Lab assay of single mutants.
Amino acid sequence: EEERTFTNEEEARKAKKEAEKRGLRVTVTKDGTTWRVRIG
């Protein structure tokens, strides 16, 4: 499991799409101005 943080919503969405392409489970949460993308 890996967690990545982004300040840019577009980049967070891109990371989510890429992980889904690899067949991984992805959770995206917004924490104030930060987007957290949890993969795995």
Rank of each mutant, 00 (worst) to 15 (best):
E2V: 13
G23R: 02
L24G: 02
A19E: 03
T33I: 10
E9P: 06
R22C: 09
T34Y: 12
A19H: 05
R22Y: 07
T7W: 09
E9Q: 07
E9W: 15
E18G: 03
T7I: 07
A12S: 03
L24S: 03
E3Y: 10
R22N: 09
K17A: 14
T5A: 06
E10I: 11
V37R: 00
R38F: 13
R13D: 11
R38Y: 12
V26L: 01
R22T: 05
I39S: 04
V37I: 08
V37M: 06
R36C: 12
V28P: 00
A19P: 01
A19N: 03
E2P: 07
V37P: 02
K30F: 15
V37A: 01
L24V: 05
W35P: 01
R25N: 09
G32F: 02
L24R: 05
E18N: 06
E3W: 12
E2S: 11
R4Q: 11
K14T: 10
E18I: 06
K30P: 04
T34K: 09
K21H: 09
E1N: 09
E20H: 04
R22M: 13
A19C: 11
E20Q: 08
E3S: 07
R36E: 04
F6Q: 00
G32D: 06
K16M: 15
G23V: 02
T7M: 10
R36V: 15
E3I: 14
K14W: 10
T33E: 15
E3F: 09
E20V: 06
E9F: 13
V28I: 15
T34A: 08
V26F: 02
V28S: 01
A15F: 15
G40Y: 15
G40T: 14
E1D: 12
T29P: 00
F6I: 01
I39W: 07
I39F: 08
V37D: 02
G32R: 02
R38G: 04
T27Q: 07
L24Q: 07
K16V: 15
T33C: 10
A12K: 00
D31F: 07
E20P: 01
K30T: 14
V37T: 01
R4K: 11
E1I: 15
N8M: 04
K30N: 10
D31M: 08
F6D: 00
E11Q: 07
E3V: 13
A12N: 00
T34S: 08
N8P: 00
K16Q: 15
E2Q: 10
T7H: 10
E9T: 02
G32H: 03
R25S: 11
V26I: 03
R38W: 12
G40Q: 14
L24K: 05
V28R: 00
K16D: 00
I39L: 06
N8V: 06
E11H: 05
